[in-house]
Design a protein around this nucleic acid. Structure first.
Length: 224
DNA sequence: TCATTAAATTGTT
DNA sequence: AACAATTTAATGA
């Protein structure tokens, strides 16, 4: 019908919606472009949109009280975030920055709530996503104590292969070593060396602008 | 289709 | 941060 409905239909959660619900969602969605290095929102901002990455890569992070930068999650094409802030009607607890030029789909708050109230498919999706995030955050708490750069690179990379958050993705991701460094909070040089070592250990294969995971379990559980 | 050039990415110091 | 090497993408014959 129109570009907005196409945006919705491309979203993973749309698969579980009825035609009526998709139509309704289409009226509440809009598009936004964020260029590399720009912030979509800062901690403390209000952003009344549930946000999906249509094309690109963003980082969700915050600065801890001790002053350390901490990445909560990397978000690539196909994933949606911010449902917590929208549901609770409160300010963002984190920064969101684009690691490359990125296209976003934004679902406004009232439409989000309409789906929340009316669509069982939508709720099933939300519950699954919350559950998966919980697991990821638990792992993040543990990983924050791990200071070894290689392990940080490994764990940040493994997030992109969560089968619930990214349903039909293979074992490849298009990401540069510079982007991975920004995500893991290490320099490009360290990201480069980490990837080389991980490749030697048979965990992954690093190609030009792309990484192929060979052993996802080893990558997720990496501790050095 | 192939060769040339520019741009992006990687590898190293 | 700087620089060289490598890979990809774009261009045009």
């Amino acid at each position: 019908m129109n570009a907005r409905n196409d945006l919705v239909r491309a979203a993973i959660w749309a698969r579980e919606l009825t035609a009526d619900e998709v139509e309704r969602a289409g009226r509440g969605v809009s598009e936004r472009l964020v260029s590399k290095g720009a912030y979509l929102c800062h901690r403390g901002d209000r952003l009344d949109y549930w946000t999906g990455v249509t094309d690109g890569l963003v980082k969700i992070s915050a600065i801890s009280r001790s002053g350390k930068a901490m990445t909560f999650a990397g978000v690539r094409s196909g994933a949606w975030f911010g449902e917590g802030s929208v549901l609770k009607d409160e300010e963002r607890k984190y920064d969101v920055v684009a690691l490359r030029d990125t296209r976003l789909a934004m679902l406004n708050r009232s439409t989000f709530f309409w789906l929340y109230e009316n669509s069982t498919g939508f709720n099933r999706f939300l519950v699954r996503q919350f559950n998966e995030r919980m697991g990821q955050f638990l792992a993040t708490i543990e990983y924050d104590r791990i200071l070894e750069p290689k392990a940080r690179v490994a764990r940040n990379l493994s997030w992109f292969f969560n089968p619930v958050l990214y349903p039909d993705t293979g074992s490849e991701i298009e990401i540069t070593q510079e982007e991975l460094g920004l995500l893991a909070g290490v320099s490009r040089q360290v990201a480069n060396r980490s990837l080389q070592e991980l490749e030697e250990e048979g965990v992954l294969r690093a190609e030009h602008g792309r990484i192929t995971v060979v052993n996802l379990k080893a990558l997720s559980d990496y501790e050095g």
